[in-house]
């Protein structure tokens, strides 16, 4: 297995976006790309990352391999790469390590690191294809700010989607808060658009703690998609055009 990115920045951001939620995980490498699927320790959230082979500068995977890696260790290794350095990952069949090589574009500095692989049981959850009742596309910075603001007042947020607006509400010991975002088009700046596709109205409650973990992916993508159906996990997708995506799933809180 050998995969090269032109710039380390994307991989650094991907690891930063998931390492606090899932500690150790397996990267599944096939000829179509690298992916991981992992639950957080409390089994409430699920992370799915896909890095497509087309998004790499060069990519080769002769035999499918599952590489068990501590994401904190991977973040440490990636700290040694400059944002504009190229990154090459190499793993040979049956080897217990993965190699990272970083090269500056002027080629005057090359650094190499070897990370020990871990044995990790890989059990994947089956994520069904779902027709969601409501899909909201919005700037990722808006979601990050909304979740951070509401976290000051409560632990949970109720997200309600109607035809032309989406409402985030919370309440706690000191009071209540809500943020309403209305659909807005923008032909010249599509990344600032708020688009709401509503088949059925949805209202779901989630723990803000997890949403705040998810919005760590905001530096990867200007936009985010919230896909919701009643009594179904929320899907928060940060698309990376040409490269892949990070999808987070979160179980809703249920009424007693």
């Amino acid at each position: 297995f050998e995969a090269k990115w032109d710039h380390a920045s994307t991989l650094k951001k991907v690891i930063d976006a998931v390492k606090d939620l899932i500690g150790d995980t397996s990267w599944d490498c096939t000829n179509t790309g690298m992916s991981l699927q992992s639950m957080d320790s409390s089994h409430v959230a699920l992370v799915h990352v896909l890095l497509k082979s087309e998004g790499f500068e060069s990519y080769r995977c002769d035999r499918n391999v599952s590489m068990g890696i501590s994401l904190n260790s991977m973040a440490k290794v990636l700290k040694c790469a400059g944002n504009d350095d190229s990154v090459t990952l190499r793993h040979e069949s049956e080897s217990s390590v993965v190699n990272f090589a970083f090269e500056s574009h002027k080629e005057e500095r090359v650094s190499e690191f070897e990370l020990k692989l871990m044995n990790i049981d890989t059990e994947h959850l089956g994520i069904p294809e779902t027709e969601y009742d409501s899909i909201i596309k919005m700037p990722s910075a808006d979601l990050r700010r909304t979740c951070a603001d509401l976290s000051q007042f409560g632990d949970s947020v109720t997200i309600s989607c109607a035809k032309s607006d989406v409402r985030f509400e919370t309440s706690g010991d000191i009071g209540t808060g809500n943020v309403r975002l209305s659909a807005r088009g923008s032909s010249d700046k599509p990344e600032t658009e708020i688009a709401i596709e509503m088949i059925n109205p949805v209202s779901l409650t989630f723990a803000l703690k997890y949403l705040n973990f998810f919005t760590k992916a905001a530096p990867l993508s200007d936009t985010v998609k919230l896909c919701m159906s009643n009594n179904h996990p929320l899907c928060v997708e940060f698309p990376m055009p040409e490269v892949g995506y990070i999808r987070y799933y979160l179980a809703p809180k249920i009424d007693e």
């Binding site: 639950m39 409390s42 089994h43 409430v44 959230a45 699920l46 059990e123 994947h124 959850l125 089956g126 994520i127 069904p128 632990d155 949970s156 409650t205 723990a207 179904h232 996990p233 799933y249 979160l250 179980a251 809703p252 809180k253 249920i254 009424d255 007693e256």
Partner: peptide, 14 residues
């Protein structure tokens, strides 16, 4: 606070 079921309730292990 309302209970939060594990994600496997919705997406069982394959």
């Amino acid at each position: 606070t309302n209970p939060q079921p594990p994600i496997e309730t919705f997406f069982p292990f394959m």
